[in-house]
Simulated scan of single mutants.
Amino acid sequence: MNEERKRILNLLAEGQLTAEEAESLLSALEETPSAAPEPRSGPARLLRIYVHDGEDGTVVKVNLPLALARFALKFVPEEQRAQIVEAGFDLDEFLASLGSGVPEGKLVEVHDPDGTEVLIEVV
């Protein structure tokens, strides 16, 4: 069993994912080729979300296919979502644009005075 499948199943066992969410993620993994990645030549395909809470040291790192971006963004805490909006990035507009080819690069980078960092990028 590959590491991604194990991680999804562990999240399900811990109650951090519902059965439907786990099924969706496992299905997406099956659709993703497991061979070595080809050299980059097409549009961006991966969404990276990084959240570091400076107060309690919690770190969340998510790397997933853009097709699952809507699902992943619901794990961004509300406080950080508000900071992202304050930084001038419209998450709803981003989600709506996913079907039309999102350009590669950093979308949001927020550094809060309390040490919280949020980075969302497309690669």
Rank of each mutant, 00 (worst) to 15 (best):
S27M: 11
L25E: 00
L17F: 13
E93T: 09
P103I: 02
G54V: 03
E78T: 03
A67G: 12
L107C: 05
F75L: 06
Q16N: 10
I84W: 00
L91M: 15
F89D: 05
A67I: 01
A69V: 13
A82N: 09
V122K: 10
G15Q: 04
N63T: 04
L47W: 00
R81V: 13
L17D: 06
L46W: 15
S97A: 13
Y50L: 13
R70F: 04
R7W: 14
E38G: 15
A69H: 02
P113L: 10
L26E: 02
S41W: 05
E109G: 10
V62R: 01
P39I: 10
V59W: 09
R70P: 02
L11M: 13
A35N: 14
A67C: 03
S27A: 14
A82H: 06
V51G: 01
P65A: 13
R70Q: 08
L107H: 13
E93I: 02
L66D: 08
L46E: 14
E78K: 06
T58C: 02
E14A: 09
P33K: 10
V59N: 14
S34Y: 07
E38W: 12
G54C: 03
L119I: 04
S100R: 11
A28P: 01
H111A: 09
I84Y: 01
L64Q: 03
A67Q: 07
S24P: 00
T32E: 14
A22C: 00
I8H: 06
R5V: 08
V110P: 03
L95K: 05
L29N: 06
L119H: 02
A87Q: 11
E93R: 12
D53S: 03
Q83D: 12
E117L: 12
D90K: 05
L66A: 12
A82P: 02
L17E: 06
V123S: 13
P43W: 15
T32W: 08
P37A: 13
S34W: 05
I8M: 06
V60G: 02
M1N: 11
N2C: 07
P113Y: 04
P113W: 04
E104T: 08
G101M: 09
E121C: 04
A82Y: 02
Q80S: 07
L46R: 14
E14R: 13
E55Q: 08
H111S: 11
S34K: 12
L47F: 00
T58Q: 08
Y50P: 00
G99K: 05
N63A: 07
L29C: 05
T116H: 02
Q83W: 11
A72K: 00
L17N: 09
V59P: 10
D112T: 06
D114K: 13
R40K: 15
A44P: 10
S100Y: 12
S100L: 11
H52F: 15
E78H: 04
P33N: 10
G105N: 07
E14I: 00
P39Y: 11
V60P: 00
D56T: 09
E23Q: 11
F71W: 15
G105V: 06
P39N: 10
R48P: 00
G115T: 03
D53F: 03
E79I: 01
A72M: 01
A69C: 14
E79Q: 04
L25H: 01
D92Y: 07
K74N: 14
R70K: 11
H111F: 11
G15C: 03
E109S: 11
R7F: 13
E78D: 05
L29V: 03
S24I: 08
E38M: 15
